[in-house]
């Protein structure tokens, strides 16, 4: 932008300041409150005059702290474990979605093959399926159909070797949740990446092929490096959904695979909400997306506009 910035009316800046305040205000409020004791939150000492404390964070993370916080005699909130679960699930599902989605998008853009139109239309259609619609079938399937039978071959083997009931279900495992997230995010990732792959000049790929590279080499060595911005955008959107999702995770997880959103909702529905601790957990859940936003807002915006403007 070499153009000089225009001088604007002061009222204009006032409007902008107001808008910034409105969009960031609630987040800041939560941030500030997460450092307050419940007494301070409820008594309503408005403003910034309070003694900041990390007690709420200590309560939330008590199961992975190396010391025992003084104000706690029992660690009720297993937030640390949930945080690790969330990280595992979100990272692995993002990675898988990207690799698989990228290959599919490339095939859809670059090759003419039988069934191409069907696949591309289906991808577009399943984009609109809400998680709530998947709830019932996924719950049923993951608990019943997608199980290793305890009398079956592998189930019997597991029972004899490791003991236990011998039936292994997808429900209650990390992989079960990851599988849904990958499937749920694939259509969107394929859609976004298509619009980036189209822009890669064909001549580059042909040059590589003339030099003797196979289709997989062309893909990994020529195309992938060129669509990095698209990959970044797709990665952020996938991570965001996998990290934030509540409904399907709550249906599929058990005590050991619970993710952070489930924990927050469970604590919210109790009669006496401990605002300070809840805000601290909320803040911890919000931090990764906030970091992404601050460092990669350009990619996010490109991804968003590529999705809609070229749709």
């Amino acid at each position: 932008m070499s153009q000089a910035h225009e001088k604007q009316n002061p009222a204009f800046y006032a409007i902008i300041a107001l808008l910034v305040f409105m969009s960031v205000g609630p987040v800041l409020l939560m941030f500030v409150n997460s450092f307050k004791l419940d007494v301070d939150i409820i008594s309503g000492t408005t403003g910034l005059i309070f003694l900041p404390t990390i007690q709420n964070y200590e309560t939330a993370l008590c199961d992975i702290l190396w010391y025992e916080p003084e104000h706690l005699d029992f660690c009720a909130l297993k937030f640390g474990g949930a945080f690790i679960n969330s990280l595992i699930i979100a990272l692995i599902s993002t990675l898988l979605t990207l690799v698989i989605g990228c290959m599919a998008a490339y095939a859809l853009v670059r090759f003419r093959f039988m069934g191409r139109d069907t696949v591309s239309l289906t991808t577009l259609m399943v984009r609109m399926v809400p998680p709530a619609v998947l709830l019932v079938p996924v719950f049923g399937l993951w608990n019943n159909e997608f199980c290793l039978d305890r009398d079956g071959l592998i189930g019997g083997f597991i029972r004899d070797t490791f003991g236990g009931r011998g039936d292994v279900c997808l429900a209650g495992t990390h992989s079960g949740i990851i599988l849904v997230y990958v499937a749920m995010n694939l259509p969107f990732v394929i859609w976004i990446l298509q619009s980036f792959i189209v822009q890669v000049p064909r001549s580059l790929e042909e040059a590589a092929r003339v030099d003797g590279a196979g289709p997989f080499q062309v893909f990994f060595k020529v195309v992938l490096p060129l669509i990095k911005p698209g990959l970044a955008a797709a990665a952020i959107f996938t991570f965001r959904i996998a990290w934030n999702e509540y409904l399907l995770a709550s249906a599929l997880s058990d005590r050991n695979t619970r993710t952070v959103p489930i924990l927050i909702v469970n604590n919210m529905s109790e009669f006496n909400v401990e605002w300070g601790v809840i805000m601290a957990t909320g803040m911890l859940l919000a931090i990764p997306p906030i970091i992404f936003t601050l460092f990669a807002s350009r990619q996010i915006i490109t991804g968003m506009t590529a999705g809609a403007v070229k749709g």
């Binding site: 939560m30 909320g282 997306p289």
Partner: peptide, 16 residues
């Protein structure tokens, strides 16, 4: 700053 709200988890938005 404007895209911040939509990146945050719906659960957290509800909580705020």
């Amino acid at each position: 700053l404007f895209i911040l709200p939509m990146m945050i988890a719906p659960v957290v938005v509800g909580l705020m």
